[in-house]
């Protein structure tokens, strides 16, 4: 347990030391703030006191930002040889992978925490459905965790960060949009199966304010699957 926290702490520190964290925070808040409050179908145009606009912007910005955060997690350790250093300390492969996963999740958590003023502002100008906003954030966190574990896995299979980034985007794209598009082209059971694989379907249903156990199982299985695959890839050296 200590090992996980030590790894996560160190990794989070290096996000901030290497400016990745600041760039990510500024870009994320800039994009989501601009489109939520100032431009396009923003909150004032929609005229409803909810954060649906923000959630759908964040749905896309996080999709692109997360692979950029996760790409170096394991690929860099493999390239510089520090992986050997870590894994010969008293820490298991699993602790390492989970620690890395948590560091990225905490960073995303920090980014999302900075959007809480949106919620505070909104509750001052209208009647807000607090439950829907809570589940909206829950949806974003679950989605981020799913993409982090996919990014962690692609980072574990290569020692090239660009490859890890592109592979994570590629795999992510299926969950993000392709399954959804495919599902609409099929009917019956096949359509239903593909549709149930689509992350956007589950994300929508959670942000609508309904937390179904089906959605939770879906996200948790992607998260655990990604972590398990990363651990297996790391263990392959043996």
């Amino acid at each position: 347990m200590n090992g996980i926290w030590t790894i996560a702490k160190k990794e989070l520190q290096s996000f901030f030391d290497s400016l990745i964290a600041y760039i990510m925070l500024v870009a994320f808040l800039g994009f989501s703030g601009f489109f939520t409050w100032l431009y396009g179908s923003d909150i004032f145009l929609v005229g409803q006191a909810n954060l649906r606009v923000f959630f759908s912007i964040a749905y896309w910005t996080l999709f692109f930002f997360i692979p950029a955060i996760t790409m170096r997690l394991l690929a860099e350790e493999k390239k510089t040889g520090t992986l050997e250093l870590l894994l010969t300390k008293s820490i298991t492969d699993r602790q390492l992978v989970i620690g890395k996963f948590l560091s990225a999740l905490v960073l995303i958590g920090i980014a999302l925490a900075f959007t809480l003023p949106y919620y505070i502002t909104l509750s001052n100008i209208g009647n807000v459905d607090h439950g829907a906003i809570l589940t909206g954030y829950l949806g974003l966190i679950l989605m981020s965790a799913a993409y982090i574990s996919i990014g962690l896995y692609t980072s574990s299979i290569t020692n090239n960060q660009i490859v890890a980034f592109l592979a994570a985007l590629f795999i992510g794209l299926f969950f993000h949009i392709i399954f959804d598009v495919l599902a609409s082209n099929f009917t019956g059971t096949l359509g239903a199966i593909i549709s149930s694989l689509s992350l956007s379907v589950h994300f929508e249903s959670i942000t609508r304010g309904v937390v179904d156990s089906k959605d939770l199982v879906y996200f948790l299985s992607i998260i655990l699957g990604g972590i398990a695959l990363s651990e297996m890839t790391i263990a392959k050296r043996k």
């Binding site: 290497s18 040889g81 520090t82 050997e84 010969t88 300390k89 008293s90 820490i91």
Partner: peptide
């Protein structure tokens, strides 16, 4: 494996280090 790693100090071949730390 994990219990015994505590008793070992290891300097790997090319001495990998975190250069930005």
């Amino acid at each position: 494996p994990d219990e015994l790693k505590k008793h070992i100090g290891y300097l790997p071949e090319h001495n990998p280090l975190y250069l930005d730390m």
